[in-house]
Amino acid sequence: MTRIAILGARGRLGRAVAKAFLEAGYEVRAITRDGKLPYELRDAEGIAADALDRARLIDATAGVDIVFNGLSPVYSDWSSVLPMAENVMAACHANGAQHLVAGTVYNFGSPMPAIITEDTPQRPTTEKGRIRAEQEQLYRREAEAGRVRTILLRAGDFFGGRGTGSWFDLVIASKLAKGVYTAPGPVELVHAWAYLPDLARAFVALADKRRQLGAYESFNFPGHSLTDLEIKASMERIVGHKLKLASMPWWVLRAGSPFVPMWKAIVSMAYLRFEPHRLVSSRLEATIGEIPHTPLDAAVAGALADLGLLSTEAGRKAA
Rank of each mutant, 00 (worst) to 15 (best):
Leu82Ile: 15
Asn107Pro: 01
Asp169Asn: 11
Ile172Tyr: 03
Pro113Trp: 09
Ser110Gly: 03
Gly129Gln: 04
Thr117Arg: 15
Met112Phe: 10
Ala133Thr: 14
Tyr139Ile: 00
Ser166Glu: 04
Glu118Ala: 11
Gly156Ile: 14
Gln135Thr: 08
Val105Ser: 04
Arg154Ser: 10
Val88Thr: 15
Ala143Thr: 10
Pro83Lys: 04
Thr164Tyr: 05
Leu82Tyr: 02
Leu100Gln: 02
Glu134His: 04
Arg132Ile: 08
Met84Gln: 08
Ala145Lys: 10
Ser80Gly: 03
Ser166Ile: 12
Gly160Trp: 06
Ala90Ser: 13
Asp77Thr: 08
Pro111Asn: 08
Arg132Glu: 08
Met89Cys: 06
Ala114Asn: 06
Val171Met: 14
Phe159Ala: 07
Leu138Lys: 10
Arg130His: 12
Arg162Asn: 04
Pro111Thr: 11
Gln137Met: 11
Arg132Met: 14
Thr120Leu: 06
Val88Glu: 04
Val105Trp: 09
His99Lys: 03
Ala94Ser: 07
Pro83Asp: 09
Gln122Asp: 01
Pro124Ile: 08
Ala90Met: 10
Ser166Trp: 07
Ile115Arg: 12
Leu100Ala: 00
Asn95His: 09
Val88Asn: 04
Ala91Asp: 03
Thr125Pro: 00
Lys128Leu: 07
Phe158Ser: 01
Arg162Cys: 02
Arg147Phe: 14
